[in-house]
Design a protein around this nucleic acid. Sequence first.
DNA 1: ATATTAGTCCTACAATTGTAGTAACAAAAC
DNA 2: GTTTTGTTACTACAATTGTAGGACTAATAT
Lengths: 125, 125
Amino acid sequence: MKKPKVILDIEWLIMGVLWKKGVLSIKEVWQQLFPKGEKAYTTVQTYMDRMTEKKLLHKEKIGLVNFYRPLIDEQTLIKQATEKFVSNTFNGSFGSMAAFLVDSYNLSIEDLDRIKKLIQKKEVD
Amino acid sequence: MKKPKVILDIEWLIMGVLWKKGVLSIKEVWQQLFPKGEKAYTTVQTYMDRMTEKKLLHKEKIGLVNFYRPLIDEQTLIKQATEKFVSNTFNGSFGSMAAFLVDSYNLSIEDLDRIKKLIQKKEVD
DNA sequence: ATATTAGTCCTACAATTGTAGTAACAAAAC
DNA sequence: GTTTTGTTACTACAATTGTAGGACTAATAT
């Protein structure tokens, strides 16, 4: 893998709907993300084409319409991005970031519980 | 507060040394970050001046040398950045991100312990 | 005084990002 | 078969980012 791709804000949004829905045309993505026309159709088009060049998406023409699907799965991309972010902000310490999150935000009981269980599982080693 | 500043990679590095050391000249920052000359002195200079315009740093001339200090503290900036990141990647769910971190990385016993304690404290509510 | 040194200030320029218009073309509607 | 409509393909262009050279200036060394 070459230089771990930087994902831009709008690219996250696009990946998001594609991960959810699978395979979509530009128009479908555009309507999902900007139903009020907050961005022009062609803006989304430009992003999706650039993402195709960057190998984030695969584009296939069916009839006369192009359909796009993600070439990277959500977990993988999020993991890469997390690593970069944590390296910038917490000197690469995932533990520090996890602690920061638990400490700084009011997580729900369910979240706290989920995390507690994960820790217990980890501690069995 | 206007639009929450986007912090670039090298800007994180610069903020990092300034948070550590307090007040430094360009040269000092440059030597800390790029002792092998990986980046030109003037590159660091450009960053630090742009950061001053963006109000990330304050610049003060003492004698004929400029000294820079952070205008934002580490916690605040990291919090902002975390919020944006989590919004992009985990639909804004801090709990999900915390769980992901605990689950996906091998945190040290100490880290796990620290987080467990924080959860316990939170649960007393 | 003069040449060398350090640091600042200013300018430059290519790559990437953000945003979108327009041309071209095929299908559908008339 | 000509007009309208939906899409793609191509082009454009300003702002930001990444990177740095060169001019200027004050201090320093000779």
